[in-house]
Amino acid sequence: MAIESSVLDGVLVVRMRGDLDHHAVERIRDEIERELRATGYRALVLSFRDIDFMDSSGLGLILGRYRSVTQHGGRLALCEVGEPLRRLFELSGILKIVSVYESEEAAIRAVKEA
């Protein structure tokens, strides 16, 4: 698991790559939090484009970041969620609180328009 982050117009964009399981989440959670702190928790986009596998640990990571971002008045959006991950998202009910966009650009636009 590796992450690559960039800040575009004040929006923190985190692209995750590999398997998003408990092992990976324990390693990347603090890294994302650090970046959020540095950017003032304004807006976060999590990209799932290069995620090959995800389980409920990934859901925990999303919910945790949702909490920390919204507590600071910021916004969170997800993008490029592939077919194998869809059912997990639907099953979890996470889509009721976080929006998923087709592209990174669309997700960035959405969190900026708040």
């Binding site: 959670r29 389980d55 409920s56 640990s57 859901l59 925990g60 945790g64 997990l88 099953l91 979890s92």
Partner: peptide, 14 residues
């Protein structure tokens, strides 16, 4: 405390 989603068993069941 570990940011678990509480969905593990639900996912296994389905």
């Amino acid at each position: 405390d570990l940011e678990r989603s509480g969905m593990g068993l639900t996912i296994m069941e389905s």
